[in-house]
């Protein structure tokens, strides 16, 4: 079969050509000059998210979520696992990159008022994704179980515990009991590698669908030029 025939075969069975038309061949309003680069922030965030998912999965293969073994398993990753130190480094710096990119992406949308009609829902899902990133960062911080991890999480959960009315319940749910220990760790681990990724994947799907469906917002123009 020629490549052409392969392509036709695949299109007939999967609708690949229509997916290509809808995603890749779709037209977007032209952005000229440096402004055009601001439009890459969303996809950059998606890229780092994928990087976090891959490095995270690799780390999870050697990590043990219990106070007795977590610290040693992280040391093991850093000293024994092939490229372990590099992969953990990528995941660590990738976490900061996520926060920076999400913030920059949000600022682009804010200053260009791209959240306005008809993209309100895209914005709300986006803000949700922002809080999910914060959730990732908070739950992931505890996992190495070193001094920094333990005490920073202690501060974080005690702040959550001081919320008026629901605080004590929130802190109990987060910690899995009255104080920090093995239950806290498994809880944070489950949130970090199961719950948050699933919710984020769903929200991300919705966000991307809405972006493609509405079309990306155009670079704003002054009023007198007609906006």
């Amino acid at each position: 079969m020629t490549p052409r025939a392969c392509w036709d075969w695949a299109c007939e069975r999967t609708g690949l050509d229509r997916v290509w038309d809808a995603l890749m061949a779709r037209h977007i309003p032209e952005a000229r000059g440096p402004v055009a680069w601001f439009y890459a922030l969303g996809s950059a965030t998606l890229f780092v998210f994928t990087l976090q998912a891959v490095t995270g999965a690799l780390l999870a293969m050697n990590y043990v979520p219990s106070p007795d073994h977590a610290y040693d398993s992280v040391r093991f990753i850093g000293s024994q696992v092939l490229f372990g130190r590099f992969i953990r480094g990528l995941h660590h710096w990738g976490a900061s990159a996520m926060v920076i990119l999400v913030a920059l992406h949000m600022l682009r949308v804010y200053f260009m008022a791209a959240y306005k009609y008809p993209r309100e829902a895209t914005w709300i899902v986006g803000v949700t994704l922002f809080t999910l990133v914060m959730g990732f960062s908070f739950t992931g911080y505890l996992l190495p179980w070193d001094q920094k991890a333990y005490w920073a999480t202690m501060v974080g959960t005690s702040i959550a515990g001081q919320t008026p009315v629901i605080g004590p319940y929130m802190s109990k749910v987060l910690l899995g009991g009255a104080e920090m220990g093995a239950a806290t760790m498994t809880r944070f681990y489950a949130l970090h590698v199961l719950v948050l990724p699933m919710v984020t994947a769903a929200a991300l799907g919705a966000h991307l669908f809405l972006v493609v469906w509405h079309g990306i917002s155009e670079p704003p123009r002054r009023k007198e030029q007609g906006s």
């Binding site: 680069w37 890459a40 922030l41 996809s43 950059a44 890229f47 780092v48 990087l51 106070p67 610290y71 992280v74 040391r75 850093g78 130190r85 590099f86 992969i87 953990r88 480094g89 990528l90 995941h91 660590h92 710096w93 990738g94 990159a97 990119l101 190495p144 179980w145 070193d146 001094q147 920094k148 991890a149 333990y150 005490w151």
Partner: peptide
């Protein structure tokens, strides 16, 4: 942009790694 970010992250990961303090 993705390639640039990957370069920066790789540099940071390779040179600084991710710190690990004493056991909690």
């Amino acid at each position: 942009v993705a390639a640039l970010i990957l370069c920066v992250l790789s540099y940071l990961a390779w040179h600084f790694g991710a710190g690990l303090e004493e056991l909690a």
